[in-house]
C-alpha cells in the first residue's frame, strides 16, 4: 500500500523534500513506516534525533496501524508563539 510522508522544518530542509509517496506492506505500523523511511532516507538520521510523528494530522504512537493513503508527518518539537521566554 502507499502512504504519503511529509516533513517539516529541519527535517524537510535536511532531506531536501517536503513530501514523498512511499510503498509499505499492508499492515505496516507507524514504527514499521519509520523504519522504512529510515532505510530509504538514511541522511535523515531519524533513529538519532527527537521528532514527533502524526498520522492524518493527529499525533500518533508507534504501534498505530497504517492504512492505504495515510499521511505520515515527521517534524521537530514545535516552537510557535514568539513573545514568552524560551
Amino acid at each position: 500500500m502507499q502512504i504519503r510522508v511529509r516533513l517539516f522544518a529541519t527535517l524537510r530542509q535536511q532531506a531536501g523534500w517536503a513530501q514523498q509517496l512511499l510503498d509499505v506492506p499492508a499492515g505496516t505500523t507507524l514504527d514499521g513506516a519509520l523504519a522504512a523511511i529510515d532505510s530509504a532516507y538514511p541522511s535523515l538520521a531519524i533513529g538519532r534525533r527527537t521528532f514527533y510523528a502524526a498520522v492524518n494530522q493527529e499525533y500518533a504512537q508507534g504501534e498505530q496501524l497504517l492504512r492505504e493513503g495515510d499521511e505520515v508527518a515527521l517534524f521537530p518539537p514545535v516552537s510557535g508563539g514568539g513573545a514568552v521566554a524560551e
Binding site: 514504527d31 504512537q61 514545535v78 508563539g81
Partner: peptide, 30 residues
C-alpha cells in the same frame, strides 16, 4: 507545546531552527 509551527531565527551571520522543549508524550523515536 503542541501546535506544529516552527520558527527559523535569522541573524547577521547565520540561522537556526528553534526547537521548543520536548513533550515526552508526543515524541516518536526508533
Amino acid at each position: 507545546a503542541i501546535v506544529p509551527i516552527w520558527k527559523e531565527e535569522n541573524w547577521a551571520d547565520g540561522q537556526v531552527w528553534v526547537e521548543g522543549p520536548r513533550q515526552p508524550e508526543l515524541v516518536s523515536h526508533l
